[in-house]
Every structure is written in structure tokens, then in C-alpha cells.
Amino acid sequence: MSSKKGSIVVVSTGMTLGAHMTPRCRSYIEHADIVIGSNPPLVEQWLESINPNYQSLQGLYAKGKHRADTYREMVDTMMAAVREGKNVVGAFYGHAGVFAWAPHRVVKEARKEGYEAHMEAGVSAEDCLYADMGIDPGRVGSQHFETTQLMKYQRQIDPTAYLILWQVGLAGDTTVKRFSTGEAYRQVLVDLLSEHYPLEHQVAIYECPFTALDDMRIEWMALKNLPSAHVSLISTLVVPPSQKMVKNQTVLDKLAELDLQQEL
């Protein structure tokens, strides 16, 4: 255990306010010297009601500013408080370690400097998606990609599994400075996906509710209609499998041979 004063615990506040935060995460927030986070405004109000010493990182975002700079500043802000000897809690919505660079990086840097640091798990949008849409990712498998990354790099799409694309509202944003792209960018995504799926293939836009007053959104449409669909920063694209799994007879034969040997 480190004897250095100052520490950081990165906690996950979950997706739906009040419903998803674990008792352990709440306890860390209650007892922190300072809570620093990036969350929707309502969640920030809620966190402030739990610990009045809450500092929002939302002001670090700006249109036209490279988001990598924003995330670096988030880490620097949290580390500055740790170096002051404070017991810091970093609070991030959803699961703090899912699709989030800054929370992982601050834990890494704090440990490197000899401070106690760890992350607490939470409920992510992915968890909510499985429950709300009735999808078991173990049934035929599930591939997850950040949408722009899928578009920029040569990835292997498996149309026999679910394909889940995150941040579809930012599809094709190579500048990393915008908060939305548009129809023309989503058309490029559709062109890419149409190499693996029929244009009539049914896909869904999913959005998880942030409060118990909000409704979840599950909107089905043909793949070809995705460009004109309403999408936002919280939209996720769900592409069900379009093909059946094909047995790997070579491996099955090897396994059958092993089974025979073990019976002897």
C-alpha cells in the first residue's frame, strides 16, 4: 500500500439517475475531499447534493477544440488535486471505464506517481441496451466499435453476430472537434455497412434514459434510411446478424477425434 498522501478513486454513476450507482460508489462520493466529474447537468446537480465539493469538468469542452486536449485537461485537473494530497473521486456517467479515455489515464498516471488509485465498475449503456432490447450477447456474439474508428480502419465485420456501433451521431468525424456530423457522413457509414448487410436490413437506434422520467428510444429502420434518421451524441446503432453462423468442420473433426481418444 502506498504511503503517499493523496489518492483517486474513479467511480461510475450509471446511466439512469438514482437507479444505477452502486452503494460503494456512493460511499466514495460521500467521503471524498473533492469530487471531480464529467456528467450530464442533472447528474452533476445530484452529485453536488451528495457531496457539495463537486467540480465539473464540462467547461473544458468547447466547439472547435480537439477533444484529446479536453481529455488531457481532465486528467491534469484530477491529478492536480491528488498531488495536493486530497482524496479525490473522479465521477463519470455510465461505466467510467467504458468509452472513456480520461478515467483510465488518471488511474494509470496516479499509480505511476505512487498514489493509490483504482476504478469502480458501474452500469454502462451497453448493459442497459442488453436489458432494454432483449439481446443476450452470448447467443451469437456481439462486436462493438466506436463508429468513426470502424470507418477509418480496416476492421473485420462479422455479419453472423450483433454489431453495435457507439457514437453514431459523430460518424466520420475525423477532426475530433465536432459534436455531430450529418447525413452525408452517415451515408458513408451505410455504404461501408452495405458491403456486409442488405440495404433493407433492419437496424435500430437505441438511446438509454438518463432519468426515470425519460423514455428509452428503440427505433427500427432499414439500413438505407439511417442517414436521414435523428441521431444524437447518445445514439447507438444496433445491427442484428444478417447471416447464420457456419460450422467450422475442421475444428469439429479435431474435437471429435479428441473425444474419441479420451473415451479410450
Binding site: P41, L42, R67, A68, A100, W101, L170, V176, L233
Partner: peptide
């Protein structure tokens, strides 16, 4: 009060880099 709270809310981008 709840309606006012909800209408004040806005979506924030998750702190990740996709590049």
C-alpha cells in the same frame, strides 16, 4: 419542478478518444 429540471438537461460527450 421535475419538468423544468429535465428541460435544463443536455447531452454531454463521453470522455473518450476514437482516433
Amino acid at each position: 419542478d421535475l419538468i423544468k429540471l429535465s428541460s435544463d438537461d443536455e447531452v454531454v460527450p463521453p470522455p473518450m478518444v476514437h482516433d
